[in-house]
């Protein structure tokens, strides 16, 4: 059903042919329909059933899954935990990335080396990241407790409650170099005349940073906040892989404090075989993420500065 007979095609000039356009974008349009829209609609469909993933003997249950979800204290708790994780991890990663970028945006020797060292962790695949940090957080053999012992702190069990939450935050922060690189590029785009003029006028370094540099790069900070929020809502692999798998087999018992919402969804699907209920959770989560994203987007007019003279379109 590609729109071949749109008004634009009748102009007769091939350059403006809708058909050519749709031929080129067809892979994405079809892919979006088949691999994004269809699964979402399908999930909405099974969220209204008691489907268990195997049996064909399912039936419609209306909104019962959603009603159950509203009273499901475990699910609500994991949702709140996810919000807390986001509220802590995003400011720390964005702020940390900005801080490192400011440090590196100076005429120093070996800046390139430092930039590489800070950026490298953000390209490490999540599986390797989890393995590396489990070696560090290891209660007996890990280096973190060894260092802490030097300053006579008794060994801490990092990967169980309640510390697992902090371990997860630390692991997240290790990857903030990706944001740093973007901030650094943004800082280098700030015209130095502005800052220098303010310095000449007697403004302090901090005031220049606060009232000139930060507003100038606020669109980039904003973008980092938006993508950071969306990314931290999705976190599932880190808690699964950081969980201690002491027992035979792979069923990891994820600690309460890192039991984020997607972990809960995953378990409803694959441990509980409750596909209908799990899908209802996915849809509710979708709406929550949408709402939070819209709130963040709306907030932008309060603190994001956009240049209006169109100079950005060079």
């Amino acid at each position: 059903m590609v729109a071949t007979a749109s008004p634009a095609t009748r102009r007769g000039w091939r350059r403006y042919s809708s058909r050519t356009f749709y031929l080129f974008v067809a892979p994405w349009v079809l892919g979006f329909g088949l691999l994004t829209a269809l699964p979402l609609v399908y999930a909405l469909g099974i969220s209204l059933t008691n489907f268990n993933g195997v049996s064909d003997r399912w039936r419609w249950v209306g909104l019962r899954n959603y009603a159950e979800l509203l009273g499901d204290t475990d699910a609500i708790a994991s949702l709140l935990r996810t919000l807390a994780y986001t509220a802590i991890a995003v400011p720390l990663t964005v702020g940390g990335g900005l801080g490192l970028a400011v440090l590196l945006n100076r005429r120093l020797k070996a800046v390139g080396l430092f930039r590489t060292i800070f950026f490298l962790p953000s390209v490490v695949p999540v599986v390797a990241m989890a393995i590396m940090w489990k070696l560090i957080f290891n209660r007996d053999a890990g280096i973190l407790n060894a260092i802490l012992e030097k300053i006579s702190v008794t060994p801490i069990s990092w990967l169980v409650d309640p510390n697992a939450f902090y371990a997860l935050i630390i692991l997240t922060l290790w990857g903030l170099g990706g944001g740093m690189v973007i901030m650094l590029a943004a800082l280098q785009g700030v015209p130095s005349e502005l800052e220098e003029a303010a310095l000449v006028d007697g403004a302090s370094r901090w005031r220049v940073f606060r009232h000139i540099t930060v507003p100038m790069i606020s669109p980039v900070i904003f973008f980092q906040v938006v993508t950071g929020v969306i990314a931290s809502f999705q976190v599932i692999i880190q808690p699964l892989l950081l969980a201690q798998t002491n027992q035979v087999g792979r069923v990891a018992e994820v600690p309460q404090s890192t039991h984020l919402f997607m972990v809960q969804v995953y378990q409803e699907f694959f441990s509980g075989n409750r596909y209908g209920y799990g899908s209802a959770m996915l849809w509710m989560f979708f709406l929550v993420i949408l709402a939070v994203t819209l709130v963040v987007l709306r907030s932008s007019r309060l603190w994001v500065y956009y240049e209006v003279d169109g100079e950005a379109d060079r």
């Binding site: 974008v25 994405w28 349009v29 979006f32 691999l35 994004t36 269809l38 699964p39 979402l40 399908y42 999930a43 099974i46 993933g53 938006v226 993508t227 969306i230 809502f233 999705q234 599932i236 997607m262 969804v265 995953y266 699907f269 596909y275 799990g278 899908s279 996915l282 989560f285 979708f286 993420i289 994203t293």
Partner: peptide, 23 residues
Amino acid sequence: LFVVLLSTMMLPQILTLIPTYVL
């Protein structure tokens, strides 16, 4: 269509992954 494309960049992929698996 381009707006849809940009918004899918914002769509958490994990949401579609499990239903895709079921399908």
